[in-house]
Simulated scan of single mutants.
Amino acid sequence: MAVVTFLSAKGSPGVTTTALLAAALWPRPAVLVEADPAGGDLAARVPGPDGAPLDADRGLLPLLTTARRGLRAAQVLDQAQVVAGGSRVVVGVGGPEQSAAAGPVWSALGGALRELGQGPSHDSAGPFDVLVDAGRVGADPVHLDLLRASDVVVALVRSEVAAVLHARERLRVLGGALRRPDGSSPRTGVVVVGDLRRAARRADDCAGVLVGPAVEDLGRLPLDPAGAAVFAGAGTARPERTALVRAGRTVVATLAAAAEATATTAGRVPAGAGAA
């Protein structure tokens, strides 16, 4: 199975919302790991299945405190919690101070997530695809080793001139930084977020600026407050009818297919493993 990482280069284009959307719609068993070095907000955004808050003592922080002695996939899965809607999530650190203290632990986490994709031997559900919310990625990300461990890297970009130009430069630099010792790199693409009803052409133009030999066009998502509210703990009638979820089905299907194809090429999952 595969590791798919969501990130942004500038601003707040909805990385966490998109990661939650992907976890809810993913066609195979998946676990979402909140790995934003700036600090995560999943614990505050989404409740458990009974409406109660998530357990603040479970998540990435306990993993970071033990990872210096080695980190295994089973430990990651032990820190996962089920949220309303049925997705499994591992909530992130509280802020940049905890992240900085983690130091080299990010590379150990990357290895554990790759192992999780092989399937912990004790878990009858088999292997998981891993979805990573990596937050905003700057020039020298502390979790670069984690990003390199990804099979697919998805950059969320707002359909605004400044955001697109910034993302183009960041993707150019990041492309070199993501190269692994064996010369390979994660498959990389962009999802453009914007007003698709009034400015669909602008979203297409933005994607055209970003896409190139090393960057794929992975789809469009709308700016949809009602749909985003579903992934911020708010109740919304018929969430499957929101513009975000309807468009999200197409984008998530594209991402899942890309993840499976990449993992298959790498020899980690049989072809057709994700077929319904």
Rank of each mutant, 00 (worst) to 15 (best):
V215R: 02
A102N: 03
A139C: 06
P127F: 05
P47Y: 07
A207D: 02
V4G: 00
G126E: 12
D145L: 12
A112N: 11
G176I: 01
V3K: 01
V245Q: 13
G274M: 01
L147Y: 02
V161D: 07
G92V: 00
T254D: 07
V161G: 07
P96N: 13
D133N: 15
P62R: 09
R246E: 15
L54A: 08
L54I: 04
G274S: 08
V3Y: 01
E97T: 15
F6Y: 07
P225L: 14
V191Y: 02
G175T: 00
G235L: 13
D140F: 11
L20E: 05
A73T: 07
S159R: 09
S107E: 15
A108Q: 12
L116R: 02
R68E: 13
A24M: 07
V230G: 14
V89G: 08
L77D: 10
R249Y: 06
P239V: 13
P27I: 01
A67I: 04
A257K: 14
V142G: 08
F231D: 04
G194P: 04
G111N: 09
G119T: 12
A149H: 02
A200D: 10
L171E: 07
G110Y: 05
L244E: 08
R202Q: 12
L244F: 09
P96C: 14
R114W: 10
P186Q: 03
T250M: 13
A275D: 14
L210A: 07
A258R: 15
R249K: 11
G85D: 05
L32V: 00
D145T: 09
V137P: 01
